[in-house]
């Protein structure tokens, strides 16, 4: 049984999703977490404690905030 806490992904404008770390494979990155919620790093920014994290970095945080890039005016 897993002892790792779930990864909470708060996609602003949508819903909060919880991911099991084990389901992301070995040594997951933030991009892997995005892929698990069907998002591409091209269209969003992942924030941890209010700051963006590079999507290719190892997934260390357990609470992610995801902001969509929107351009319409």
């Amino acid at each position: 049984m897993s002892t790792d806490p779930p990864i909470t992904v708060d996609i602003k404008g949508e819903e909060v999703q919880e991911l099991e770390r084990e389901a992301l494979g070995p040594d997951p990155t933030y991009a892997d977490a995005l892929a698990a919620v069907d998002l591409s790093p091209h269209e969003v920014s992942v924030l941890v404690d209010g700051r963006p994290v590079p999507e290719d970095q190892p997934l260390e945080a357990t609470e992610l905030t995801v902001l969509r890039l929107i351009k319409g005016g």
């Binding site: 269209e43 902001l67 890039l69 319409g72």
Partner: peptide, 26 residues
Amino acid sequence: RCIFPEAPEPGTVPDCATTGVLGVLP
């Protein structure tokens, strides 16, 4: 840029012309 360090690749983010926009929203 602190929030969004780089713009997305062209064509990866939709615009109002392709997705529509509620008129009163802006």
